[in-house]
Amino acid sequence: MRNYRFLIAALPLAVMIGLGSMFYERLGKDPSELPSALIGKPVPAFELPGLDDGKGLSADDLRNGPVTVVNVFASWCAPCRIEHPLLTALTKVPGIRIVGMAYKDEPAATRGFLEQLGNPYERIGVDQAGRVAIDWGVYGVPETYLVSTDGQIMWKHVGPLTEDVIRNDMLPLAERLMK
């Protein structure tokens, strides 16, 4: 009887330890990280005009080329400004190409944004209507994809990039894709 009472009295502690270890496991992981139906699939067919007379962006560009970071951004999006220096830093990583998709943005505003902060993108596709973004399953800006040399979407990040995400998720994967 006494043992039985002790077990019952220890039950709340056991439940708490279980919950606690689960919380510990979840810490530092992003709950807004969404699985994308497109991961492992080839990029959807699309063709976007460039900004002014710059080069545009199309599915063909992604199908043959280096490992590519596709960053969906807009001048009106505050988190895009926050992640911008990280994209600029990424341009210095050898073997990676960074392209941008300007989402629902006036070309003039996009231009102002890049003039102010610098342009890390090798190519920019202007998606003023946001139609291509729908095919890509864009959830909100900023959003970043990693595309392999043969044009497969390998990884996706919703929300601004952080140093942690780049160092721990994106770069290791990019390195594997380069091999």
Binding site: R5, F6, A9, A10, P12, L13, M16, I17, G20, F23, Y24, L27
Partner: peptide
């Protein structure tokens, strides 16, 4: 989390012993 575990865990451990 550590704080939560210390407060709750400490109290529940005491509870397991004393209750």
């Amino acid at each position: 989390l550590i704080f939560l575990l210390a407060v709750t865990g400490g109290a529940l451990a005491l509870y397991a012993v004393r209750a």
